[in-house]
């Protein structure tokens, strides 16, 4: 039984003078504990898929099923992490982290304790009372991870969370996020345009093409590297093989979509 099912999703964006078909015929399933990557060029509808799963927008047609039951409201099972941290600059790190519980009216002393504990786990002890501007990009993104995790989401939606970071920080954060999600047995959907990141973190990679956004091909990551931490995956020989396959797939699409 799958935790999450997208069934024949299509989505149109309307504006005053035109409309965009952002998604068409998107169907896939995610099992509990699975790590899926959505890979594709910018504008192929990856963020739109995440917004639909989170219940932030209603798809024009199609259905999202959670535990085989259809949902169309804001999804309490999901946690969203954006490309930038979007920590509120006027709140301390701790208050930022407690935003979710506060909105859901679950704020209490044990939440505070939990926040501090999670901060420690991501390597950020002693920052709870600081304001975000005094943290580095990587630290802020880790704080944003804690903010997402504290509401105990079943499914994490990660929208290019590492793309605004420098390379070294990005590699470290990939490892950290990977370990945290394994520790807490979370299901995750990662949006990225970085092939290496997709291979090193996920169990399955959904390659998309644009105009309209559809699924081009789904790649299974070889079992040998699935459970390896991302940094080590990048040095594995299977990594290179898969990288080439995905590279070719993306190139083919580009050739197809090039103007005739």
């Amino acid at each position: 039984m799958s935790l999450l099912t997208l069934s024949n999703i299509a989505h149109l964006y309307f504006s005053k003078n035109t409309y965009t078909k952002a998604l068409d015929q998107i169907s896939f399933q995610v099992k509990k504990g699975e790590f899926i990557s959505l890979l594709g060029p910018s504008g192929c509808g990856k963020s739109t898929i995440l917004s639909i799963i989170a219940g932030l927008i209603q798809p024009t047609s199609g259905e999202v099923l959670v535990n085989e039951a259809s949902t169309n409201t804001s999804n309490q099972l999901t946690g969203y992490m954006l490309q930038q941290d979007y920590l509120f600059p006027w709140k301390t790190v701790l208050d930022n982290i407690l935003l979710g519980p506060q909105i859901r009216k679950q704020q209490n002393a044990s939440m505070r304790e939990r926040a501090n504990q999670l901060l420690e786990e991501v390597g950020l002890p002693n920052v709870a009372d600081l304001y975000p501007h005094s943290l580095s990009g990587g630290m802020r993104q880790r704080a944003a991870l804690v903010r997402t995790l504290i509401t105990e989401p079943e499914i994490l939606l990660l929208d290019e969370p590492f793309s605004a970071l420098d390379y070294q920080t990005k590699l470290k954060l990939e490892d950290l996020v990977f370990k945290m999600l394994r520790t807490y047995h979370k299901t995750a959907i990662l949006v990225t345009h970085d092939i290496g990141e997709a291979i090193s973190m996920s169990d399955r990679i959904i390659v998309m093409r644009a105009n309209p956004g559809t699924i081009a091909k789904i790649f299974d990551v070889p079992i040998e590297i699935r459970n390896e931490i991302p940094f080590l995956v990048r040095r594995h020989q299977k990594y290179d093989l898969l990288f080439d396959k995905i590279w070719n797939e993306l190139n083919q699409q580009e050739a197809k979509s090039a103007p005739e």
Binding site: Q76, G79, Y80, L82, Q84, Y86, I103, T151, L157
Partner: peptide
């Protein structure tokens, strides 16, 4: 204001 701040809050069901 940057709509992504709202997105963060909406994702918590605000």
């Amino acid at each position: 204001i940057d709509p992504n701040y709202r997105k963060v809050l909406l994702s918590f069901g605000a």
